[in-house]
Design a protein around this nucleic acid. Structure first.
Length: 571
RNA sequence: CGGGCUGUGGCGCAGCUUGGUUAGCGCGUUGGUCUGGGGGACCAAAGGUCCCGGGUUCAAAUCCCGGCAGCCCGACCA
């Protein structure tokens, strides 16, 4: 490809709305353009990277026996009604009505469609199956952001395993875990497989693939010494015991104007945060519920959902607190509460001589013994793990890492197959409901994660496996015709060797060409100039390291090919 | 959904507080001359519903009301 024919609208300055590196650079380098919040056009270079990512995914899916298919992006409402998700999905699903008045939706995932298709399997002899597609998903995200990282329409590779029993599902799950590990390795992404919550999907196992990045939206916990890794939604850590001095009888005392844990700790020597009870009022599926944590701990809402099985949780409003407990946030507590469910985090178990709100504005209780004074309905793990807390497996400090979720695999079980009556005959002639797994990778998000991982102050630095082109040949022609001829010859030679090459044939100054090529992030640059040609040499520069070597013209193409192949093999 | 910020040529911005020349600057774009190994110089030119609608006023990019869009934080989110 000649640069002069290529549509690469590079920008010298990043548009003001772009904040994170991948967003800024993909815009500046002419890979993407926004049409609308959360909807991006992939320009020629962007599409090439996107395709390369998708092709790596396809190769590894094929390698574990996956079969590619393509399902509709638009679904009739009835398939979602059949699984019960038409009602439960809420506003995240784009819904519309066709000319006949029929309700339809844009698919945000395809479990239903797969389960419906799976009815065509009748015998255990036809199992197992792994079906996958690279299809556009539509999700009406409340807040699209960060370029390609969080959008409302995006390509996802989603695969689904169909098995007759749990052992088969386990096998399919393990195959996917292996495939995902190879996929991210090949893209150069240092993805960490972590235990995760399966969230609204349910299921017995759930692993997320997380790429560390400040641009991410998820936190994981990792133990560098034993390898334990989990999403904070699920992570556990050792809680160092707190020494409670001997207490005594419960006592109410005035705390005028004190509304926060910190303010109470400042006012009361006997009430440091770890000796307070934090009382949070939540509405779980419509039921007002008290959630108790140690004062210095914070609640993980996902844990609350997972542990209680509630579909929805939201903090109660101030008015709801007053209605339920008679006081406003800041003076709330669970002492004496008998008419509301009380959930408490395990870190509070056995504690005494604590301080908490008295359910009267501007009053707290001291010397609370949690077993004696509070009727705890259930003890649950609800707290969010903090950086540096000891690992439960090996005792070493855990690290908290911000990450981009690039893949998620989980076992669905029989929920969807049951809803669609996807059953097969087993060897004994009995009907058995299929069990399914569901496995996703966001293609565009993975691409953005690579951009987040590989860039510098000059621009993008794509790993060769996903780079839009392998090499750029840059003639510094001026009026020197020989330079142009050598560049053309090298271009042909490189194409012939199977490398993907751009010839920068623009009549532009060297600085312009170099800057653009570095911004775009082509892994190798061959510079052809009169200076080098005087010695029958060209320069070979590696984008990532900036290292340049002089190479005889006759050997240049082969040198590029070798360098590329070696880099590819190293991934 | 709550909080904050922003909408002015393709991109980055100024002008708005205190209404009043022909709406300006840098970059980019087009033509030309020179230049030719890191965004070069000079000359000439094109390019604008100042987000939209209404209002106030002799007069609105500027003030007022309403809307829309975008970004950030939070909430939410396989």
């Amino acid at each position: 490809m000649r640069w002069s024919n290529l549509f690469v609208p590079t920008l010298r300055e990043a548009p003001a709305e772009a904040e994170v590196a991948s967003h800024r650079l993909l815009l500046r380098a002419g890979f993407i353009r926004q049409l609308h919040s959360g909807h991006y056009s992939l320009l020629p270079l962007g599409l090439r990277v996107h395709d390369k990512v998708a092709d790596i995914v396809r190769e590894e899916m094929d390698a574990i026996g996956g079969q590619e298919l393509l399902l509709p992006a638009m679904h009739p409402a009835w398939v979602w009604e059949q699984s019960g998700r038409w009602a439960s999905m809420g506003e995240e699903m784009f819904r519309l009505t066709d000319r006949k008045g029929a309700e339809v939706a844009l698919g945000m995932t395809h479990e239903e469609v797969i389960a419906h298709l799976a009815r065509e399997i009748h015998s255990y002899r036809e199992l197992p199956q792994i079906w996958y597609q690279v299809q556009w998903k539509f999700r009406d995200e409340p807040r699209p952001k960060s370029g390609l990282l969080r959008v409302r329409e995006f390509a996802m590779k989603d695969s689904y395993s169909l098995d007759i029993d749990d052992a088969g599902l386990d096998r399919a799950f393990d195959l996917h875990q292996g495939a995902y590990t190879r996929i991210f390795e090949r893209m150069g992404l240092p993805a960490i497989a972590v235990e995760a919550s399966s969230g609204a999907m349910g299921g017995s196992a759930s692993v997320e693939f997380m790429v560390p990045s400040d641009a991410g939206e998820d936190d994981i916990v990792r133990c560098a010494s034993c390898g334990y890794a989990a999403n904070v939604e699920r992570a556990v850590a050792v809680v160092a015991p707190v020494d409670d001095p001997p207490g005594g009888t419960l006592e109410r005392f005035a705390t005028p104007g004190i509304r926060t844990i910190a303010a109470l700790a400042a006012a009361e020597a006997e009430a440091p945060p770890q000796r307070q009870i934090k009382t949070m009022v939540y509405v779980l599926d419509g039921q007002v519920t008290l959630v108790l944590l140690r004062g210095d701990h914070s609640l993980s809402e996902q844990k609350l959902l997972d542990r209680t099985g509630a579909a929805q949780a939201r903090p109660a409003g101030a008015d709801e607190c007053v209605a339920a407990l008679g006081a406003s946030p800041g003076s709330l507590g669970a002492v004496g509460v008998t008419d509301l469910p009380v959930l408490a985090d395990g870190a509070l178990e056995g504690r005494s001589n604590l301080t908490t709100g008295a359910n009267v504005d501007d009053f707290h209780y001291r010397r609370v013994d949690i077993e004696r004074d509070i009727r705890v309905g259930e003890w649950l793990d609800l707290r969010q793990v903090r950086h540096g807390e000891p690992c439960t497996a090996c005792g070493r400090p855990l690290e908290l890492l911000r990450c981009i979720e690039t893949g998620h695999i989980f076992k669905l079980g029989r929920r969807y197959a049951e809803a669609f009556e996807a059953t097969v005959m087993d060897a004994e002639g009995a009907a058995r409901v299929l069990t399914m797994g569901s496995y996703g990778i966001g293609i565009g998000r993975a691409m953005a994660a690579v951009a987040e991982t590989y860039h510098d102050e000059r621009g993008l630095c794509w790993p060769v496996s996903v780079a839009p082109y392998d090499v750029a040949v840059v003639p510094l022609a001026g009026r020197d015709a020989a330079v142009g001829e050598v560049a053309e010859r090298l271009y042909d030679e490189l194409c012939g060797l199977g490398t993907e090459v751009i010839l920068d044939d623009r009549d532009a100054r060297p600085g312009v060409k170099f800057s653009d090529i570095e911004l775009v992030g082509i892994p190798y640059r061959v510079t052809v100039g009169p200076r080098g040609l005087a010695n029958d040499e060209v320069e070979l520069t590696e984008r990532a390291s900036g290292q340049t070597a002089n190479v005889p013209v006759a050997e240049a193409a082969a040198a590029v090919r070798t360098a590329r192949d070696e880099a590819l093999a190293a991934l």
